[in-house]
């Protein structure tokens, strides 16, 4: 199981993305992070911390659960429903630039659900997408604005992002066949 990003690499990548955010938005005015549950949330928190170190500004950060917006929710005749967790966005997203954060960009369906969910909270000025890994194979016209690593994969492979906050270690692993 090849490790495609180790802890150092993930750290440097997030620092780079933080600088790109400042450069592209000409500062941090009106920015807010929203992490997609589960692993988008700690990545969003780390980016917010790094931005505070760089700019001295505190960026509001929330977490979004997209389960109730999944496009496959009621498509199967029967089967257990996916677990729903709490969305916590304690600030108004109206007229803010929302930095949407996820760990892996694959088919784009999660991002589509996240965009629909966000719009139910208000009307942001813009939404930009940040992903740690883009593994290709898009099924929807969706593209990330900030990419940690472009990782060519085959559909049979699976990309596992592990983060200290959840998994006790930082690494990105490419697993062969049959995985989640």
């Amino acid at each position: 199981m090849p490790v495609v990003m180790d802890a150092d690499r993930i750290g440097r990548t997030l620092t780079r993305i933080a600088h790109e955010i400042v450069e592209r938005n000409k500062g941090t005015d009106d920015l807010a992070f929203v992490g997609v549950r589960t692993r988008g949330v700690p990545i969003a928190r780390r980016l917010a911390r790094t931005l505070r170190e760089i700019t001295g500004h505190e960026i509001p950060t929330g977490s979004l659960d997209i389960t109730l917006y999944r496009d496959d929710l009621m498509r199967h005749a029967v089967g257990p429903q996916p677990v729903v967790r709490k969305t916590e966005i304690q600030f108004s997203i109206d007229n803010r630039k929302i930095l949407l954060v996820d760990d892996v960009l694959y088919t784009g369906r999660t991002t589509r659900a996240a965009l629909d969910a966000l719009i139910d909270y208000g009307r942001p000025k813009a939404i930009q997408l940040i992903v740690l890994v883009d593994r290709g194979h898009r099924e929807l016209p969706i593209k990330a604005d900030y990419v940690g690593k472009n990782l060519p994969t085959s559909p049979e492979e699976s990309v596992q992002v592990r983060l200290i906050e959840i998994d006790g270690e930082d690494e990105v692993v490419l697993e062969a066949g049959g995985g989640a």
Partner: peptide, 13 residues
């Protein structure tokens, strides 16, 4: 939490 949003509706069902 859904009941605290400006739009109190999700497409789940």
């Amino acid at each position: 939490e859904v009941g605290t949003r400006p739009i109190k509706k999700v497409p789940a069902l």
